[in-house]
Design a protein around this nucleic acid. Structure first.
Length: 286
DNA sequence: CTTTTCTCCTGTATGC
DNA sequence: TGCATACAGGAGAAAA
């Protein structure tokens, strides 16, 4: 599942293979992929025609192509989205939702998404380089504007579980279920403990571990890049052997040997060590 | 305002 | 073999 490191790998691929090229024609297939583009799929395709891609940027899990320097094509990969750079004669993928043909003779850019949680939209770029449609997302830990002390202050005031806060993209962006579990394992904290019950140094350690584990994943994901295939499988394909918590239910904790457990939280799975990460004593009110 | 739940989607795995 | 069900989960709308 694409979280920040995987999305960054895709961004780098787009920077290498798409920036500097002029869109001759765009096909948007079906309304769902353009559901965040209020004017609709046809409007999106029409407005992409003739634009020049001048940059590829990212905040958290949001990715965008800068068009002619003043507009952004927002790309969200959702759960299963892929950006593929392929020759025109490559067969159409079953779940192909968007196709970009460039004015040069180079390869096409395709958006393929099995579960269609992802999508494309055009959004004006603000002065700070962030598209309007991404403004509600907080900076991710690798941005210059990221202020960890401010994030800690906001977290400390929250009465919700710390894992919920880690997954809240308006607090800090880029962290998904996998890296949240990894950060909590490294920090030896159970995800259902309340933010307000943790000390600021502990909250800082958790955020630091989240940043660290994403940086490590990015280092490994970056090596997997294939010139003609902008990969989205960084976590599942390359970093998974480095995971200590996610998907490890029933296997020994890499730190203490206790058998890792799986619990359900926020309609998804959470993995943790019962010895290193004890549940909070007082059950949260429902 | 804050916090939580629901919903969107389809391929894969599992159980009866 | 076939059918039903669980699961994967990001993010925004809706509800509390």
């Amino acid at each position: 599942m694409p979280e920040l490191p995987e999305v960054e790998v895709v961004r780098r691929g787009l920077a290498d293979h798409v920036v500097g090229r002029c869109v001759q024609r765009a096909e948007i297939t079906g309304p769902r992929v353009a559901r965040r583009h209020v004017a609709g799929a046809e409007d999106l395709a029409a407005r992409l025609q003739g634009t020049v891609v001048t940059g590829a940027a990212r905040r958290g899990k949001y990715l965008w192509l800068v068009l002619d320097g003043d507009e952004a094509l927002i790309i969200h990969l959702g759960m299963s989205g892929q950006m593929l750079v392929e020759p025109a004669e490559a067969p159409r993928e079953k779940h192909l939702h968007a196709l970009f043909v460039f004015a040069d003779d180079g390869p096409q850019l395709r958006f393929v998404d099995q579960r269609t949680f992802g999508g494309l939209a055009l959004s004006p770029l603000a002065d700070d380089g962030i598209p309007e449609a991404v403004r509600h997302i907080a900076p991710d830990p690798f941005e210059a504007s990221y202020d960890q002390r401010a994030v800690i202050r906001r977290m400390k005031r929250r009465e919700s579980a710390v894992k919920r806060a880690l997954l809240d993209q308006s607090l800090v962006s880029g962290i998904g279920n996998i890296y949240a579990d990894e950060a909590l394992w490294r920090a030896k904290v159970h995800g259902e403990r309340l933010c307000s019950a943790l000390t600021k140094p502990t909250l800082g350690r958790i955020l630091g571990h989240a940043t660290e584990v994403m940086a490590e994943a990015l280092n490994q994901g970056g090596t997997s890049f294939d010139a003609l295939y902008v990969n989205v499988n960084g976590a599942s394909g390359y970093f998974d052997r480095s995971l200590h918590a996610y998907g490890r239910a029933g296997t020994p904790c890499d730190r203490c040997g206790s058998l890792m457990r799986r619990e359900h939280f926020m309609n998804r799975s959470s993995y943790s060590c019962p010895a290193c990460q004890p549940r909070p004593r007082t059950r949260r009110p429902r």
